[in-house]
Design a binder for these strands. Structure first.
Length: 632
RNA sequence: GCCGGUGUAGCUCAGCAGGUAGAGCAGCUGACUUGUAAUCAGCAGGUCCCCGGUUCGAGUCCGGGUGCCGGCUCCA
């Protein structure tokens, strides 16, 4: 006899039966796609073989969706196997918001084939084909997939450590899978295939490229539709689209990956830079500027020639080889070396808004998020070993302040460790990685480990921000570097009068101004906070007759540094409001007969609407109350 | 770089049996003199991404290049 308890306290005794039957007896089966048995996710069809705790996994829970999507991936693979005989299967996991399957489909497919595959999936789903788990030895599984002529599955199985594996069978289709899965294909109802893309087998570009089909599935049709709608809406906040609509920047065929910033975009950029400079001054940073082009020998010395050449642009001056800088550190170090430094000077925080060029492969360019020329809000901190941790913590605090307090963004952190093609000794890397880890732990930060993803000269902590459809982009980074000071023979004179090697930190907060700008656009959907809005106030004269008064009001506001425009067009007020609204201008100021007589204004705020008539003085007070980190 | 898609007016798009291009918005001009999300009318606007080829004839078909979009790999 097995005794199964559910969290509510009810229990049931069974001599045999499945997890699904146990849940049914406990009155918990409704809406469950699988069960959690003693902390292990199992199929509803799994035989109960032990006593303990059981809870249902609801279809609309995070875990349930994961199972549902995984089952949807199998269903898709089954449909493809029916429609395209000879297809071989790579991997087909569930992912955030959906699933995919990588397949080698004879003849390939395009997005036009998706409806056909979806239709086949629905047909198979309707037949309620039982999904059956079978455990077998690795050998048996290998024999099965060899028979099926599926080299990818064979490769995966031969690398598994376990003696036993599980396969899930549905009709003629079977897949290697840990499970759990839904009991039969009819459980997968609310799904949609989304796109086709290429993906290298095992993510390695040396391998064959498989066809990846992306799709998503939900527990209910409404949830699926809501998701599709959300993705549609997200398109309207895409920074590339808003950049054009709000006339902030442009990307042109003549400069792939080299963005053009328009006057309105530059207002935002300049506000951002002003703010950045102020915050850095407060925190004891100084600022430098180093050349865009430097002798190639410098890059050979720094290690960039050996480790980063593929991403660099080169040029010649008087027949001598030069390189366009892809990073600011070597130039920064030359500045450090212009003087003898004392331990009293440390920590030394030298910032640079450095313009770097990197040759990014054509397929990776993406609006302002991934470009070939960008401005890093870089800084290099030179310190004594005992100062490292506090400096790291200081940078983390600065990031948190800017991301969260000033802009209200959510962010995640990652710790990246030693990559393959890197410089330096094991010990140095271990010390550096530990220092970063300690700083993360001391501040109680949550972070993800990204093994082998560090820079070639040191490990790093990265800060990631999200774009409008949930893709994340690295912005801030803190990199610990023992290599460059070595290569460049940096030193400082210690209290003991001897020469010592400083430790160097590379860091950015915004990352690339261009990328941060893109994130800014998407996060605010173009409705920028008042302090960085390209146009803060637009004056709307009710008719041409009030153009003079509108000009007076504009001049008065402009005199106190407010960015003002006047809509002098011969249009109706409704039209002017509509246009100012689509341009997402924070304040519209209506002026007509009443305002001219009283010398006042009738402001309208973009989200609150008409604020009523008021005096100029009152309006200035309204504006003065707007959040503005440039003022404090 | 790789896989798939795509490139027509400033923008969004139509033109999808090969017969020298069309709409809406924006722009310009005029009328209207406007009070809280689109006044009306007229005009102007295009090497149909580039280079080759097929054809009597190519925006349309074919080949190559290039930009862009979605992924993969890479990355701030």
């Amino acid at each position: 006899m097995y005794e199964l308890k559910e969290p509510g306290g009810k229990s049931v005794c069974l001599s045999s039966g499945t997890a699904g039957e146990a849940l049914e007896k406990l009155g918990l089966k409704g809406g469950a796609v699988a069960a959690m048995l003693n902390g292990r996710a199992v199929d509803l069809t799994a035989e109960i073989g032990e006593s303990g705790d059981i809870t249902p996994i609801a279809a609309d829970s995070e875990e349930g969706l994961d199972i549902l999507r995984h089952s949807a991936a199998h269903l898709m693979a089954q449909a493809v196997s029916e429609l395209y005989p000879g297809t071989r299967y790579g991997v087909g996991p569930s992912i955030k918001d959906g699933f995919y399957y990588d397949m080698e489909i004879p003849g390939g497919i395009t997005e036009e084939d998706l409806p056909k595959i979806e239709k086949e999936m629905r047909r198979l789903a309707k037949r309620a084909i039982p999904v059956e788990r079978r455990e077998m030895t690795g050998e048996e599984a290998l024999a099965y997939f060899r028979e099926k002529d599926d080299p990818y599955k064979v490769e995966i199985i031969s690398e598994l450590e376990e003696d036993h594996v599980s396969l899930y069978f549905q009709g003629d289709y079977a897949d290697l899978c840990r499970g759990p899965h839904v009991p039969n294909t009819s459980w997968v109802k609310h799904f949609r295939l989304l796109s086709v893309a290429g993906a290298y087998w095992r993510g390695d570009e040396k391998n064959i490229m498989l066809t990846r089909v992306y799709g998503t599935a939900f527990a209910a049709e409404e949830a699926l539709e809501a998701y599709i709608r959300r993705m549609e809406e997200a398109k309207s906040r895409d920074h590339r689209r808003l950049g054009r609509e709000l006339d902030l920047f442009s990307l042109q065929n003549e400069g792939p990956g080299f963005p053009f910033f328009h006057p309105k975009g530059m207002v935002i950029m300049n506000c951002l830079v002003d703010f950045w400079k102020k915050e850095h001054t407060k925190r004891g940073y100084s600022e430098i500027r180093t050349p865009l082009i430097l002798d190639r020998d410098l890059w050979i010395r720094s290690g960039h020639w050996d480790h980063y050449r593929e991403n660099m642009y080169f040029t010649e001056i008087d027949e001598q080889p030069f390189a366009i800088k892809p990073m600011n550190c070597p130039g920064g170090m030359l500045v450090y070396k212009t003087q003898l430094r004392s331990y009293r000077d440390l920590p030394m925080r030298m910032a640079e808004l450095g313009v770097v060029h990197r040759h990014e492969r054509s397929g990776v360019l993406h609006g302002l998020m991934r470009v070939r020329c960008f401005t890093q809000d870089d800084a290099h901190l030179y310190c004594r070993p005992d100062q490292v941790k506090d400096e790291i913590i200081g940078i983390m605090k600065l990031c948190d302040y800017i991301y969260r307090d000033v802009f209200g963004f959510r962010y995640t952190m990652e710790l990246s460790t030693r990559p393959e093609n890197s410089m330096g000794s094991e010990e140095q890397w271990a010390i550096a990685e530990n220092a970063l880890k300690q700083a993360l732990e001391e501040t109680g930060s949550e972070y993800r480990l990204n093994a082998g993803d560090g820079a070639f000269y040191g490990p790093k902590i990265d800060f990631h921000l999200e774009d409008c459809i949930g893709r994340t982009w690295q912005c801030g980074t803190i990199q610990l570097d023992f290599q460059m000071p070595e290569k460049f023979d940096l030193s400082y004179v210690g209290a003991d009068g001897k020469e010592h090697r400083p430790v160097m930190l590379h860091r950015t907060v915004l990352g690339s101004l261009e990328r941060f700008f893109g994130i800014l656009v998407e996060n605010f959907a173009g409705s920028f906070p008042y302090w960085i809005a390209p146009v803060q106030v637009r004056i709307l004269p009710v008719s041409g007759e009030f153009a003079d008064y509108a000009g007076t009001v504009a001049a008065e506001l402009r005199a106190s540094g407010i960015r003002v425009e006047v809509d002098e067009r011969d249009e109706k007020l409704g039209k002017k409001i509509r246009d100012a609204q689509t341009q997402k201008i924070p304040y519209m100021v209506v002026v007509g007969e009443k305002e001219r007589e009283s010398g006042g204004v009738a402001p309208r705020e973009r989200s609150r609407g008409d604020l009523g008539s008021m005096s100029m003085k009152q309006f200035r007070e309204v504006l003065a109350e707007e959040f503005n980190p440039l003022k404090s």
